[in-house]
Nucleic acid binder design. Structure first.
Length: 830
DNA sequence: ACATACCGGGG
DNA sequence: GTGTACGGTATGT
């Protein structure tokens, strides 16, 4: 039997004989759900010490046996192989073991043999191993030859039954020319009565895709829109949600922050109501893989948390200042969330009017619809990253760049005959951290100010082009300079003036990087012919960003091929070239405002845009062939600000007004919940006013007004609430911060507080007549705070001033002048 | 100045 | 074994 199918998810399970099976879940060309069963050898490498009698060593290793539970793990066979390890030729033993699970215990025995120098590839995930060994192409079509099996055979093997129309025991798998593929998906969103997982209950769940729009709720109301379906209670709500997933059989279940909220919340509620969350194709429960924010996995259905993908992969190219669904959807698809008073509605949904609950349902539905539309928009990006990196979709859609780079190397390393380096152990990471920083990029501190007609240029892929040009890698770095080798500029490294040297014999990482760049060139050519093709655009983006991440990878503590000298060499070259560009800009008579890493901004002054472009062309003629300076944009107006403590300009803290009227804000990060709402609104307004007006007058008047309102006690206390999360047990705090004091108070009052609670408080005037009080002594629960009890001075000094101080400093207006309203210089002087 | 703790996304 | 993120900022000591 031969079937054409596309792999979507891959995992592994043990049968009753303890054989480990790979399960590839996917879709056939006819659109049927299928599962391909397969397996591959499990092995790792041993590197002997020098002078060891290899044959004797092999015999010794061969005899290794370990007892695991009720069975014995053995070495099956050993091959003596010539390999490279970080570029150096070595002889190694390729040790095949009886089962993937046996690698760790067998390695633990043989690593202690006196002949053993090192062990490698003991930490390769079995799915990754399988993909490499069988040449599987993630998310591309394959032909599978094999035997179709049924329920009975699965049972005989001791494997779980599968909700899959086609199940094949693979004999041969071949990637074939691909046709297009768009997964069947369901986007979903839950609305709950509380914000914290483990508190409250689910009120409604919305689901959406291209065809389906639905809200399920147990909260009945009249005149419900047709999308709303009522159920008896929360238990039925969850059951119904499960039922829809079982019926729809999606390839992907898509949420926004669903790793961190929706699915953990659903799990808590399912536990409380004793419902099984057996959503997997094999009826397994959702599993949560631990991490700082966990990841939720469903066997055979790829759960995608769009927030993670956007945060990790897309965010650097977004203008959005925050990554809320509202803002991201607005930027990417031009649609927003419905505006409702969510805090009130969730708290008081029991007594809410029918019309309000109806709005709530529509809000819920809109969130699911936005998630669905975002998924459609970003699918090409997710798919292309996945195809490039070749790990399963579930992994690629939530991986960080460092992990993507590493997987890309691992999946392409075979052609270099390289052994994969071990992931660093805890102590190695500590050591890397201890060594710490090296000189980074060059930053020209901006002279704080408001400027008109600004040109911004940046290097195209600065670090990749440097790494390739000078062959920078852990396998090419030389201990001593050779006759013909690359040499960095001289720079300071750990307190010494140094140069590093790299062999001209191409290293495997620069080689892979060059391939990425060349693939990208081809894609760009194709893009010229097929303009705006989303798939090609996405491939271009994947290739570009993955290449750009390689420098960061060298510097990443957790990297297998970490190389601090390589990272330091790349920045040394980077500093050299950006400084050259600055020099050239000055020579051409431009007033350089700011430069950072790979970009430079200067005033056009009395010169035209065309002249700036001619200057750029001249620069490019002088640069090495792989390096290029590109135009970022021309801006109408921009403001560079000072840091609060120093007189010098802040790195990456600026706001620009583009010619189309849009505003690009960088580095103003007050949009956080530990700032009062008043502050967040104020800062945004002030930046916009300053840029649009070209002077600070209106913005200043606005600040005065807010300060006046504060003093007149006209600000509602809602806008002054500061929110901080209790991250651990109250008793375990070493530093007693305001929110800890409030948490203690809440406990005393019998209010529910526990780890994870969001503590809300307002800073009040405190006890009169007492000397200087700590902030925590003046913190009060919002409910216990009178409407006019807030500490005007605290809010001026700790909220308003910090948020706008550096903006006004640009105009020579100091903090004191904002407070006293005495302008020492007239505005016309600026 | 250094240490400790929290921010993000989500209701 | 699916890695315990990460860079920045406020408050306390």
């Amino acid at each position: 039997m031969m079937v054409v199918f596309i792999p979507l998810d891959i995992d592994y399970v043990d049968d009753k004989e303890n054989k480990t099976w790979i399960r590839i879940f996917g879709r056939t060309k006819e659109g049927k759900r299928c599962c391909v069963l397969d397996s591959c050898e499990a092995f790792f490498y041993l590197i002997p010490k020098e002078g060891v009698d290899i044959k004797k060593y092999v015999e010794k290793v061969k005899k290794t046996e370990v007892k695991i539970a009720n069975r014995i793990g053995k070495v099956k066979k050993i091959e003596i192989v010539k390999k490279n390890f970080v570029g150096k030729p070595i002889t190694a033993l390729k040790v095949f073991v009886t089962n993937h699970k046996d690698i760790i215990p067998i390695k633990d025995v043989v690593k202690n043999f006196k002949e053993t120098k090192d062990k490698q590839e003991t930490d390769i995930n079995f799915v990754t191993r399988y993909i490499i060994e069988k040449g599987i192409k993630s998310l591309q079509w394959h032909e599978v030859k094999g035997k179709v099996i049924g329920k009975k055979e699965l049972e005989q093997l001791g494997l779980e039954p599968l909700d899959s129309e086609v199940i094949i025991k693979a004999e041969k798998l071949t990637p074939i020319n691909k046709f297009d593929f768009k997964p069947k998906f369901l986007a979903f969103d839950i609305e709950a009565s509380e914000f914290e997982v483990g508190k409250g209950q689910i009120i409604m769940i919305a689901i959406a895709n291209e065809k389906l729009k639905k809200v399920i709720t147990w909260k009945r109301f009249s005149n419900a829109p047709p999308e709303v379906e009522f159920v008896k209670d929360e238990k039925e709500l969850i059951e119904k949600f499960k039922e829809i997933i079982k019926e729809e059989k999606p390839d992907c279940l898509v949420g926004y922050f669903s790793d961190g909220f929706d699915l953990p919340y659903l799990r808590e509620r399912a536990n409380a109501l004793k419902i099984k969350l057996d959503l997997g194709i094999d009826n397994s429960n959702i599993t949560f893989i631990r991490g700082i924010v966990g990841s939720a996995k469903i066997s055979g259905i790829v759960h995608i948390d769009l927030f993670k993908f956007i945060e990790n992969i897309i965010a650097p190219t977004l203008q959005s200042e925050t990554l809320t669904l509202d803002e991201v959807a607005n930027e990417l698809i031009g649609e927003q969330k419905l505006k409702i008073d969510l805090a009130r509605l969730t708290k008081e949904f029991h007594k809410a009017k029918d019309s309000e609950i109806q709005k709530f349902c529509l809000y819920n539905l809109q969130d699911a619809v936005l998630t669905a539309k975002l998924f459609c928009k970003l699918w090409p990006n997710i798919a292309e990253i996945t195809r490039l990196v070749n790990e399963p979709l579930w992994t690629c859609s939530r991986a960080t760049y460092s992990s993507l780079v590493e997987h890309y190397i691992i999946h392409n390393i075979n052609k270099f005959n390289e052994i994969i380096k071990h992931r660093p152990i805890h102590e190695e990471i500590q050591e890397r951290r201890r060594k710490g920083k090296y000189t980074g990029a060059f930053v020209l501190q901006p002279k704080p100010g408001l400027y008109e007609n600004i040109a911004m240029f940046d290097f195209r892929s600065l670090y990749p082009s440097i790494i390739i040009s000078f062959n920078i890698s852990p396998s090419t770095i030389l201990e001593k300079p050779e006759k013909d080798c690359y040499e960095t500029p001289e720079f300071e490294y750990d307190g010494k003036k140094v140069r590093f040297y790299f062999s001209k014999k191409q290293g495997f990482i620069p080689c892979l990087l060059k391939e990425l760049i060349e693939k990208r060139k081809k894609v760009k050519e194709e893009l010229k012919r097929k303009k705006d093709d989303p798939l090609l655009e996405a491939r271009n983006y994947a290739l570009k960003t993955l290449a750009n991440a390689t420098y960061g990878y060298y510097a990443f503590f957790g990297a297998r091929w970490y190389c601090r000298e390589c990272a330091a060499s790349a920045t040394a070259f980077g500093r050299y070239y950006i400084q050259k560009v600055i020099e050239e800009a000055k020579k051409a008579g431009f007033n350089v405002l700011y430069a950072d890493t790979d970009s430079v901004a200067f005033e056009l002054g009395n010169k035209s845009e065309a002249e700036a472009l001619r200057w750029q062309k001249k620069i490019n003629e002088k640069l090495p062939k792989d390096m290029e300076l590109e135009l970022e944009d021309f801006y109408k107006r921009g403001i560079f600000v000072t840091t609060r403590r120093k007189e010098i300009g802040a790195k990456k803290k600026y706001a620009m007004l583009a010619k189309d009227g849009s505003i690009k804000i960088r580095g103003f990060e007050t949009v956080r919940r530990d700032w009062a709402k008043l502050t967040k609104e104020l800062q945004d307004k002030v930046l916009r006013l300053v840029l649009e007006e070209g002077k600070p007058d209106k913005a200043l008047t606005y600040v005065y007004k807010v300060i006046d309102d504060l003093k007149a006690k006209k600000i509602e206390k809602e806008k002054l609430i500061i929110r901080t999360q209790l991250k651990k047990e109250i008793e375990s705090y070493a530093a007693i911060t305001p929110h800890v004091v409030i948490a203690r108070r809440m406990k005393k009052l019998g209010l529910p507080v526990k780890v994870g609670s969001i503590i809300e408080y307002i800073i009040t005037e405190g006890k009169k007549g007492k000397g200087k009080e700590l902030i925590r002594e003046k913190a009060k629960l919002p409910e216990e705070c009178e409407e006019k009890e807030y500490d005007t001075n605290y809010y001026i000094e700790h909220q308003i001033i910090p948020a706008v101080e550096n903006i006004f400093e640009v105009f020579g207006i100091t903090k004191e002048q904002i407070i006293t309203r005495k302008r020492q210089k007239s505005l016309s002087e600026f």
